[in-house]
Simulated scan of single mutants.
Amino acid sequence: MTVIDEAPGESLGEDGARLRPAERGYLHVIRVRTLLSWLPIVVAAIVVDRAILADKPVGGLLLVAVPLLAAASIIVAPSRIWSRLGHALEPRMLRVVRGWMFHRDTLVPLVRVQHLDIARGPLDKMFGTATLVVHTAGTHHSIVSLPGLSPADADSMAAVIRSHIQADLD
């Protein structure tokens, strides 16, 4: 498996194939996960503001600033993360491209795949997405996950990769 850092905006595979974007439902999964991660921080900020800073000159600052920062990140970050996630199943490689601030292009030779998992958590089920988890030979970066697939796409990609694994065993 090879990990290549490259300039944002690259959208062609090694054979000129276009990357397929993540399912639109995955945008909602990211948005809900971001909301859930901000929730305890906002609650803690409100408690600290009311309990400690209420009678100070800066009282009310956390009450406003933290929820505004949370709302901004819930609106902006998920769409940027989702728009920069793509994949391509090429004849001998699986390519996974992701990254908002740090672009990562991962190439997985199909001959190195050990086994596959398809994961669907509660949010994935709610929004109709799945994650294909590819386990490869080796230790460093030996697990590659491809989130944001439709369940049917995850099944069909797993079948194609499984056929390559089976062909190598024969």
Rank of each mutant, 00 (worst) to 15 (best):
A154W: 01
H141F: 11
A130N: 07
P8R: 08
R18V: 04
P8N: 12
L169C: 07
L63R: 10
D170Q: 15
I81Q: 15
G121T: 12
V76Y: 05
I4G: 00
F102G: 13
D55N: 04
Y26D: 07
V58M: 10
L27M: 04
A88S: 15
R33G: 07
M93G: 12
Q114R: 10
R24M: 05
A119K: 15
A158S: 08
G9V: 02
V43N: 01
L62I: 08
A54G: 01
P122L: 00
R120I: 01
H28P: 02
S79H: 10
V64K: 03
S156R: 08
I52Q: 08
R98K: 15
A130Y: 00
E90M: 11
I52V: 13
P57R: 12
L132T: 07
I143G: 00
H164D: 15
P78W: 01
L35Y: 00
G9H: 03
A167H: 05
L36K: 04
P151Q: 04
I118R: 15
D15I: 01
K125A: 12
T131W: 11
R24W: 08
P8K: 03
A72S: 07
A22V: 14
V42W: 00
L85P: 05
S11C: 06
R84W: 12
V160T: 14
E10D: 09
P78D: 08
